[in-house]
Design a binder for these strands. Structure first.
Lengths: 157, 157
DNA sequence: CACAATTCAATTGCGCACAACTAAATCGCG
DNA sequence: CGCGATTTAGTTGTGCGCAATTGAATTGTG
């Protein structure tokens, strides 16, 4: 296995460039395809992600949604407000803990799930990759994310 | 090889969820690490990407930068203006074609390259993956991006 | 040559991401 | 119990990403 310490700065620069370019480009390419697939539903991609976790759990405090999606209140508060205006969710202070806000699907929000049914298939098809490669991609992404996150907490010596 | 058409919607939903979650998370995790690495240089991650292509070519019209980075003028115009205010680039209408704006490194912009020298190594180290895996990841990302882009141009039948 | 179509950058408007901060409720320790 | 620390959402400000539009320069075509 080839390790980083043995490589020249030049080569590393090239790989870094390619890697950050391609990750950035891939992320935005996904966003673009989701954008057209979700247009009918009136959802943006991040809004769709929130709906996915709500479709699974029905109701959740803002905190939990943030943990699942790696998003903070600065992002979620206005996003949830827009979903509320759209009539897809309700927001209510929890009676047990008034700091917490419970986000609940409305019947309209639950109903939207049916219309979103074909989105995953159409998206995965659009990637042009077989299941195995998609799973491998997911695995690599999860590994780098975990490593990058812990690198942030514990900076290099 | 397992193909999509044979799979149930349920399974596809799960994979789609995992994949878009992990891609999103990875993209933002990269951004987070770059953010701390680039803080000293006074650059954001997208600004760093622009500087990378300028460090390679010295000067480029806005159009070319956009092609390299998959960004349009709506994103680049204000970003380049900020780089200009920071003293790293100059912008000038091309004399041959007055529609085009040439972006040039200033001496300060060129000098910044030295200070950025260790960024790629530190970032790649933070991923915690060996070179082979990073290259495989890049390969998968490029394939997906290509497929997604062409799927956008030619929508599903 | 004239004029319609195209190219290129900039601007506007909207939504997301994140840092920094605020405000309110809860927790926990003395 | 009382009071400081922590938790939880929300707000503000900055920057990116993209769609849609504008305006100026250029190109192509009759």
């Amino acid at each position: 296995m080839t390790t980083l310490p043995g490589m020249a700065d030049e080569e590393l620069l090239r790989l870094d460039q390619q890697l950050c370019f391609s990750l950035n480009a891939a992320s935005r390419a996904f966003g673009g395809v989701y954008r057209v697939l979700l247009k009918d539903l009136g959802l943006t991609y991040p809004q769709y992600l929130v709906m996915l976790v709500l479709w699974e759990d029905g109701e959740l405090p803002v905190k939990r949604i943030g943990e699942r999606l790696r998003l903070d209140s600065g992002t979620l508060s206005p996003l949830l407000k827009r979903l509320e205006v759209a009539g897809l969710v309700s927001r209510e202070r929890s009676p047990e803990d008034e700091r917490s806000v419970t986000v609940r699907l409305t019947s309209e929000g639950s109903a939207l799930r049916e219309r979103a049914g074909q989105v995953p298939r159409r998206l995965l098809t659009a990637t042009g990759l077989p299941i195995e490669d998609l799973a491998a991609l997911r695995g690599l992404l999860e590994r780098v994310t975990g490593a990058l996150d812990s690198a942030l907490v514990e900076p290099a010596p």
